[in-house]
Computed example of a mutant assay.
Amino acid sequence: MPVSAVKDESGTVIVQTAPGKVVTHRGGSITLPCRYHHEAESSDPARIRIKWTKVTDALQFEDVLVALGRQQRVFGAYKGRVELENSGPSDASVIIHNVTLQDYGRYECEVTNDLEDDTGFVNLDLEGVVFPYHPRMGRYKLNYHDAVQMCHQQDAILASHTQLHKAWLEGLDWCNAGWLDDGSVQYPISQPRDQCGRKDTPAGVRNYGYRHKEDERYDAFCFTSNLNGKVYFLKRFKKMNYIEAVKACQRDGSAIAKVGQLYAAWKIQLLDRCEAGWLEDGSIRYPIVNPRARCGGPEPGVRNLGFPDKKFRLYGAYCFRKNQDGVGTQATQALAAGNGALPTNRTQNI
């Protein structure tokens, strides 16, 4: 990974970090590159302090790791997963193991030599999929905090603007506005039309700006990444209601799948099934990779049939079975071997 220098003209410490971003997936390992230079004759290596923090908001930071000489301390959810790379005397890079959805974001590397210091930034991106979400109660029912919780319940996090913009470039078209992780409300339009902000306006990601997090209500755009397990359609002779579907997955050694898990299976494992099934939130959906006439439209995507009465015995079930050995899916193994990015599809909108 090439590095770019950020120099403090008044100081003796120069920090170099990766330009652009580094990319991995949930469950993988990634190095956040950071190197530094200092005047050796005036510096004691044992007095070099390295501090990594995550930028969680405009002026808010979360401690990740602090190192002084041979002493290191790792904080919070990063304990047991983060370590210095230690590839040389001027290496301040850290390795994050078993990357989580919450690890996505911007990190600061700060190197201090007595009274002099310098900083650099690294952006950690994840391969994955963005999907729009609203609960059974209907559209535009979620304030910001509800949206965070809803995405979490569906094995996801609130998407960033960058993730939503990438999804729009890949074909995502959605007419309902949703929260993003920075507190803004946006929606992607690939095919302008009057009911979605006028037909004569250009395609793009429409932005309502930053909204009141407690009082205003919208849908949510969630983001999820690689699965440590497998989503599958449970074959049963008879159709099931919701409770029967939950119990059927449990008897099969699994759990009923969450919406985010089904999207990840569609996007990453290329799950293609033209049969509607229950999911954990009580919705009925099915994933289509190869569109055909009898399976709901000309585009790939996760078809959504809404939230029927949970007593209806009309559907099958999608189950999620977690890997027992902690080893990821074939997509995980392929990425770990350096085989490139996850598979992509033209659109994620249904």
Rank of each mutant, 00 (worst) to 15 (best):
V246D: 01
A317K: 00
K322N: 07
H38P: 00
R303D: 01
T17I: 00
V302F: 01
G69H: 09
K310G: 01
A293M: 10
R26D: 11
K247D: 01
T24N: 03
G120E: 11
P45K: 00
G20T: 01
G120N: 09
Q163R: 08
G253K: 02
K141F: 06
K166M: 11
G297R: 00
D146R: 01
K258H: 08
V13E: 07
I95K: 07
I189L: 03
L342A: 09
Y140A: 14
V13R: 12
Q191K: 04
L271P: 02
K310P: 11
L115S: 11
L270F: 07
F75N: 15
H134L: 07
D281T: 08
C295L: 06
V148R: 07
R136D: 02
K213E: 11
N207W: 12
K21R: 13
P2M: 05
P19V: 00
F233K: 01
R81K: 13
L164Q: 06
S190W: 06
W179L: 01
E108R: 15
L158C: 08
T201I: 02
L180M: 09
L180C: 06
L169K: 15
Y210I: 14
V66G: 03
A58Y: 12
G120I: 02
Y133T: 05
G297Y: 12
V289L: 04
D125C: 06
G297A: 07
D155M: 02
